[in-house]
Design a protein around this nucleic acid. Structure first.
Lengths: 367, 367
DNA sequence: CTGTTAGCGCATTCAC
DNA sequence: GTGAATGCGCTAACAG
């Protein structure tokens, strides 16, 4: 039983209405030069009248050509990825391609499903930022010869083009900044160490601490992928006997959780504790104190990804390259010199409020 | 010249490898009961071996059935829309549908193009949050009988199912909150008045001012869709001779710009000025002062949209309904009682820094 | 320049 | 149960 949509007029309808053959109608609408101006106008007019809309499924099926690019993103909540989406979308549109966004929500299973979905739509190419390792991504993609660029959460061992930020170096820079401010007890709070880039960030932090002779103070804490988890974890860190004088968060989500924890603990930023965030976000610069952050060069990354993909879309098959971009340190006000009299006392025992919305303002020091 | 992908194995390949006919293979993979267990296993095995991947373009073309839902979003930068995307995605997946996201980037032309794109992919249904009026959206969609739900930036005059927040009431509530705190000079900063919901918000604000006998103080300022525009506009508002004691921003983007302006002007929040934001965001509650906001019930909106769409997807054609949800006022610390000695003096003339990153900390009062 | 023809990969009758 | 045949709407190669 054919339950096709009634209203949808097809190319045949247009051809009939215009009194031409199907093939001519197709060419006319495609703007081919091999059709007379008069005929073309007839066809366009008929199409307009009938409200004709090309069925791109059929067109792509027939021509084995697609203008869609699949983009698998792990977390739309993270403004870094959003900015990347916007940048890539602009580039794609400029070249006549469209982005098909697939949201993995940091869930490997969902990611695999999303990849399959996108692939089944016969996209011309794919861009993937994997979540939680990418073994499945490899196996999903190995056999199908779709042009592919992977980004952010990959390392140079991946057998495809990759674009990443030099996380190791950026983390070293950030840690160095805190050390230069006099901090010794710096804790690195990271979402998950099975994400390559997060691991690199942690290693960069460790390396900088080592070089400064501070390895005994180096402390990496894993806080999970959600901001509620990182909130709870950071609260724990802040109530330790020897509270750190500075926190370095490994990603956007961790920053959010850490900030809430700092707030709930009644600590002042940066007087009581400094905070440096790996990953920048628009809101970090609008309040006081502005949050010092490490900003990845999103525009450059987006352009690099697109260039790499575009080469492949054009049929070129250059050698696999692994691009590595340099991140910027943006010093704002959340990082300051360690207080002269270090506050080694533990945080006053504030009741843990899982909601985080109703923490009494009275526990906060006067502004 | 057929440049189809070499590796891609088709159903025919699977059928051959399994030694069955094409039709049988199709049924076996679809899990039809009308095929023997043995045969089915053969086929599945062959498919696995060949790395077969169904071409969903062909499948949908043939069966005139699609499981994709188009979702046209105006601005991925706005966390309200992102949260909506996540909510809707969950619902869709649960019902066996997938979301095809289309990003309009607040550009009517791009929006029209995105709608056409999604439509040409033969989606089963569409969800649209229009940008800048929606006349084009109407005309694009009128003829094609795709199940449709529109949300957020529409009013009840739209000839389709709609789900919206009662912006008028929410804005009245918010304004009332500020008035109750003793504010008189409250300025409403809105992105654009040609967005229905923004207009309603402005009207709600006006109405609340009127009812409080404050119409002479009511002031609505339009600030544009970007945060740089709203930044500049708010700077202007803050340097007026009679500076408002409270700002009420009409949407996320405006809030961001206003906050930056407040910061650049060297004003303290909430001592020098109060701020209430229409639209909530995760970061608004993690810093001090937390930003008081009006939170739309995203989850409820998402569920309502999906229910409405799902009804239509199931072939039901109930009467058109216009659902209107109630928003919450979340009082945090950015709204406080108006200072006893109102600061009517103009802002000190700080140089306008378009970058907004380097405003000297010295212009800020000591924390 | 134009019309005819042959499929793209698949789902779905309909005979057997 | 299974297989052969028939298009979905469209593009592209070919013949006129």
């Amino acid at each position: 039983m054919d339950d096709r949509k009634k209203g949808a007029s097809t190319l045949k309808d247009v051809a009939n209405a215009a009194g031409v053959s199907l093939g001519t109608a197709s060419k006319a609408l495609a703007g081919a030069t091999s059709v007379s101006e008069a005929r073309r106008r007839q066809v366009w007019e008929a199409a307009r009248k009938l409200g004709y809309r090309r069925n791109s499924l059929a067109a792509e099926l027939r021509s084995c050509r697609s203008t869609s690019i699949g983009f698998v993103v792990p977390d739309l909540t993270n403004s870094f990825f959003i900015e990347l989406v916007c940048a890539l979308e602009d580039h794609a549109l400029e070249c006549g391609y469209r982005l098909i966004l697939a949201h993995a929500q940091e869930d490997p299973e969902r990611e695999a499903e999303r990849i399959r979905f996108v692939l089944s739509r016969q996209v011309a190419g794919m861009i993937i930022i994997p979540c939680h390792g990418y073994a499945h991504a490899i196996s999903e993609l190995r056999e199908c010869n779709v042009p592919l660029v992977m980004a952010d959460r990959v390392d140079n061992s991946f057998p495809a083009n990759t674009v990443t930020t030099d996380s190791h170096r950026a983390a070293m820079d950030g840690t160095g900044h805190l050390i230069a401010l006099g901090h010794r007890r710096i804790t690195f709070i990271v979402n998950a160490l099975d994400l390559v880039n997060s691991r690199e960030r942690a290693q960069g932090y460790r390396e900088a601490m080592r070089q400064a002779g501070l390895e005994q103070h180096a402390k990496v804490v894993v806080c999970g992928m959600s901001d509620t988890e990182s909130h709870a974890t950071t609260l724990g860190v802040l109530s330790a006997r020897e509270r750190p004088t500075a926190l370095f968060t490994g990603a956007n989500v961790a920053t959010l959780g850490a900030l809430r924890a700092i707030r709930d603990a009644g600590l002042r930023l940066p007087e009581d504790i400094s905070l440096l965030s790996f990953d920048d976000a628009p809101w970090m610069s609008v309040l006081r104190p502005g949050i010092s952050s490490i900003r990845q060069p999103v525009e450059a990354i987006g352009r690099a990804i697109w260039n790499l993909l575009h080469q492949q879309l054009q049929g070129e098959h250059p050698e696999i390259v692994h691009l590595r971009m340099r991140a910027d340190l943006r010093v704002r006000e959340s990082t300051a010199a360690v207080p002269a009299v270090p506050a080694v006392t533990a945080v006053p025992a504030v009741p843990y409020d899982p909601c985080g919305e109703t923490s009494p303002a009275s526990t906060a020091p006067p502004l």
